[in-house]
Nucleic acid binder design. Structure first.
Lengths: 107, 107
DNA sequence: GCACTATTTGGCAATATAGCCAAATAGCCA
DNA sequence: TGGCTATTTGGCTATATTGCCAAATAGTGC
């Protein structure tokens, strides 16, 4: 059932692993507005350049983003565009949970 | 930019963290067909019952699934139904990558 | 109550991830 | 070439996750 095509599930989970970090989530949402160089993302995140670079390589290896070098800078942009649809789904569910907790409290 | 609403991104990333494991991914897909008890999922996964139980609690805490106790058994079912749409997106992207690698090789 | 089954929880060792610093690499310009 | 900037890579420590076993909890039926 599971063990026979475990690698199949491992490949798929790589994408979710890539999105499973606040900094990487932020970057993907930022890239939704257009390509950004590493330096721009670094400034926005307030993390070390090397840390940001490693986060981006995680997203790249998962196939979520792609990169292009132009001069000194490396520009990243979204490749797996459909992941943007995830965020509204997740947000909606989180909002519903909050609403439900509130109505439980006030009941 | 990021540091000011870091907790916001942390909450969202919880959902992706929950999906970022092959066993949990398998369970969510299985639950798409209907509710399952822990024992059924344990049999399919070939993991220790305690391990499966912990995986399920991760999914529950993230709001992805919900549980209901009936007699001795605890039945889990999908709560965040929209996550099912993720899988086709991810699969489609992975397929495209494979196709692209193939065409690069044969070119 | 006792015995039995299903599930959860605590604890531990092995492994993976995140962040920083330092060093390496790559491209620009003089 | 050398100096400068942007990015990546290696290495390290701190922290988080995974999976097992053992023990605790909860529900059933005698």
């Amino acid at each position: 059932m599971f063990k026979t095509n475990r690698t199949h599930y491992e490949k798929r989970s790589q994408v979710f692993k890539a999105l499973a970090h606040p900094a990487r989530l932020f970057m993907v949402e930022e890239l939704a507005s257009g390509e950004r160089c590493v330096c721009e993302l670094t400034a926005m995140l307030g993390l070390d350049t090397s840390t940001v670079s490693k986060h981006l390589s995680v997203l790249k290896n998962a196939g979520v983003v792609s990169d292009e070098k132009r001069g000194l800078m490396v520009y990243y942009s979204i490749k797996m565009t459909c992941v943007l649809g995830f965020f509204s789904c997740v947000q909606k569910s989180l909002d519903e949970d909050v609403r439900q907790q509130f109505s439980t409290l006030s009941a």
